[in-house]
Design a protein around this nucleic acid. Structure first.
Lengths: 190, 190
DNA sequence: ACCTGAACACCGTTCAAGT
DNA sequence: ACCTGAACACCGTTCAAGT
C-alpha cells in the first residue's frame, strides 16, 4: 500500500513506466514519428523494457494521450455551467481538434488501428461520454434534435484536425464545425 | 511519336514504369503496407529504379490511385443524367468511400502528408470538380443551399471511410452521409 | 539516359543473460 | 520479477558501377 496508481507494479518498474511516458510525451511533441528505440534510449532503458510496458506503438500513444483526453473531458461540466450548450460544444470541439492536430499520429491511431480497436474503444469512452453530455444539454433546450449518436459526431469531428495547417485551415475547421452543428439541428430528410 | 502517354520517356523506362504501377496496384490491394523494396523485387527491378520513377511512397500511391479516381470522376455526368442530383451524390460518395476504404493508406496520404500536399492538390482537383458538379446541380434545383465549398464537403466525406469494417460500419457511414447532406441543406445559424 | 544491386543507417521486435 | 542490450530481419534510401 505504498504507491499511487496500479497495485500490481513493483519498485523500479513503476519508475520506468513513468519515465517512458514522460520522455515519450516530450519526444512525441517534438516529432510525432520518433522511433520507439529512440524513446527508449532517451529514457535510458532497454528497448525490451519499453516493449514490456507498451506492447505496441499505439498502446504507448494512447496512454500518453489519455492524460490530455482526461483533462479535456473533465472540463465538460464546468464548461456547460458557464456557457450555452452549443457554445460550450464549439469551444470544447476546437480544443479537442487542437490537441489531436498536434499529436497527429494519434488521430490516426484512434481510427486506423485494426488491432488496437479495443484500446481505442477504451480511449474513446470518455470522449463519447463528453460529447453525449453536450448533445443532451443542447437537445434539452431544443437547440438540436434528439437521438444523435455521439460516435457519429466524433467521426465527423475528426475532419477538424485533418485540415491543412495555418490560418486558412483554421477557418475551414470553423466552417466544418458549423456544418456539423447544422446537421445536429436538422434531421436528415431521407 | 511512338508510344502513348508521356513524350519524354524512352524505351524500357516506360515499360518499367508501367510494370511498377501494375505490380504496385495488385500488391497494395493485398497489403496496403507492402514495402517499396518488395514491390521493386516483385516487379523485377532494382529499388533505385523505383525511386527514379516515384520519389516517395506517396507519389506512387497517388499515381496508382489516380486511375481509379479518374474512372470515378468520369462517371459524374452520366450519373447526374440518370438520377436526381442528391441521389447521384449519395451513390457517388459511397463509391468513393468504398474505394478509399480499400486503399486505406491512400486516405491518409491525401490528408496527412505535409510534403506531398502539392501532389495531393493535383489529385484532389478532379475530385473537387466532381463534387462541385453535384453541388451545383442540387443547388440549381433548390435541393441544397448555395455557396457550399466542395473542399469542405470532401473533408467531411473522409469520415465515411474511417468507419469500422463490417455491417455496422456501413450503417454508420450511411448515417454520416445523411448528416452531411442535412448540412448541405441548411445554412449554419451562426 | 536508364538500370542494377550492394550498401548504409535505422526501424520494430525478440530473447538469452543477468540482477 | 524485472531489466539489459545484443541480435535479427527488414525498412527506406543512396550511389557507384555498369549498359
Amino acid at each position: 500500500m505504498a504507491s499511487e496508481t496500479n497495485p500490481g507494479g513493483r519498485a523500479d518498474a513503476q519508475r520506468n513506466r513513468a519515465r517512458i511516458l514522460d520522455v515519450a510525451r516530450t519526444e512525441l511533441a517534438a516529432d510525432p514519428d520518433v522511433s520507439l528505440n529512440v524513446i527508449a534510449k532517451r529514457a535510458a532503458i532497454g528497448p525490451g523494457t519499453l516493449y514490456r510496458h507498451f506492447p505496441s506503438r499505439e498502446a504507448l500513444l494512447l496512454t500518453v494521450y489519455q492524460d490530455d483526453v482526461a483533462t479535456l473531458t473533465a472540463s465538460v461540466d464546468q464548461m456547460l455551467a458557464e456557457a450555452e450548450p452549443l457554445d460550450a460544444f464549439r469551444d470544447w470541439s476546437r480544443r479537442l481538434a487542437a490537441q489531436s492536430r498536434i499529436k497527429h499520429g494519434l488521430g490516426e491511431a484512434l481510427t486506423t488501428s485494426a488491432a488496437a480497436q479495443e484500446l481505442t474503444r477504451a480511449n474513446w469512452g470518455p470522449v463519447t461520454a463528453a460529447v453525449s453530455k453536450f448533445l443532451a444539454a443542447a437537445a434539452a433546450r431544443g437547440d438540436i434534435r434528439d437521438g444523435v449518436d455521439p460516435v457519429d459526431v466524433i467521426m465527423l469531428l475528426t475532419a477538424l484536425w485533418r485540415v491543412p495547417k495555418g490560418e486558412a485551415g483554421l477557418e475551414q475547421a470553423d466552417r466544418l464545425l458549423e456544418m456539423i452543428i447544422a446537421a445536429l439541428r436538422h434531421a436528415p430528410a431521407r
